[in-house]
Computed example of a mutant assay.
Amino acid sequence: MEHSYLSSTLKQFEYYKSLGDKTMDQLSFKELQHEFVEDSNSIAIIVKHIVGNMLSRWTNFLIEDGEKAWRHRDSEFEDTFQTKEELKQYWNKGWACLFDAIRPLSHSNLEQIIYIRNQGHTVTEAINRQLAHYSYHIGQLVFLGKLLKGKDWMSLSIPKGKSSTYNQEKFSKEKGRRHFTDDL
């Protein structure tokens, strides 16, 4: 784990970012703002929440509490985006903050204690916490995207009925150590 945890984590975060990117690319701005029922979260609102969390957690990651005084979490659930481009810029800003915080880390940082709302976490625990949180919400994004596009949805994983073809292609390759995202 000493040499693979951080690189594997980065690849996982990159993978989940790509799922969000590919979902948003398939949708219009109006679709991104669509709420299925009153008081539910649209994709735009979920994006705003994810990014608000990212900016708070990853800014000065090793030296400041991850819940910043300047974060206004409740306002993350109000859609204020004016364009799809603005939404995507905000999305990319959050991911840049995350990647800028994780890329310089080394194995020696992993047991360091950082705080989120005064609760101590090792760096490893904090990374795992955020990876689980973002994958949870990005799964929501993808699901909402599928609902919005219906039969026009372009699958982001193995399409229904294509598992055998996918497995045949994978098993045709020589065994080797690689990350599942390397072929995406």
Rank of each mutant, 00 (worst) to 15 (best):
R71V: 01
H72K: 09
H133S: 13
F143V: 11
V37K: 14
V47M: 15
S56V: 05
S40C: 08
H133W: 07
T122F: 03
P104R: 09
L131E: 06
I116V: 14
K146D: 01
L62S: 09
P104M: 09
I43K: 04
N128A: 08
F81R: 11
H121Y: 15
Q130K: 00
G120W: 00
E111I: 04
N41A: 05
V37P: 07
T80D: 04
S42C: 08
W58Q: 02
K48D: 03
Q33T: 10
T59D: 12
L62E: 15
S108G: 06
N41S: 10
E85S: 13
N128G: 04
L55T: 03
N92H: 09
R103K: 15
L144Y: 13
S42A: 10
R73T: 06
Y90G: 02
H72Q: 09
L55I: 06
A69Q: 08
A126H: 10
E85H: 06
V37M: 12
Y90R: 03
I113P: 02
F36P: 04
A44D: 14
E35T: 07
E35D: 04
H34Y: 15
D74R: 00
S42I: 14
E67T: 05
T80M: 01
E38V: 06
N41K: 13
H49S: 04
G94N: 07
A132Y: 12
F99Y: 14
Y134A: 03
S106Q: 12
G120Q: 06
D74M: 00
S106H: 04
L62A: 10
F81L: 12
K93N: 04
N109D: 15
G120N: 05
D100Q: 15
G150I: 02
D39K: 08
L144K: 13
D65S: 07
L98R: 01
V51H: 10
N92I: 00
L55S: 02
G66M: 08
I113H: 14
Q112E: 15
V123Y: 05
I63K: 12
L110S: 14
R57G: 02
E125G: 13
F61W: 06
E64C: 01
K88E: 13
S40T: 09
F143Q: 09
A44M: 11
H107A: 10
Y136E: 15
L148T: 12
Y90F: 14
V123Q: 12
R129D: 13
G66T: 05
K93L: 13
D39H: 05
H107Q: 09
H49G: 07
Q130P: 00
R117L: 11
L98M: 04
F61C: 03
L141S: 06
A101Y: 07
Q130G: 00
Y136M: 14
N128E: 14
Y115F: 15
V142C: 06
R103I: 13
G150F: 01
T124Y: 06
N53F: 04
T83Q: 08
M54A: 05
Q112S: 14
R103C: 09
Y90N: 06
G66K: 12
A44N: 11
L62W: 07
L148A: 14
I138C: 06
V51L: 12
S75A: 08
K149L: 13
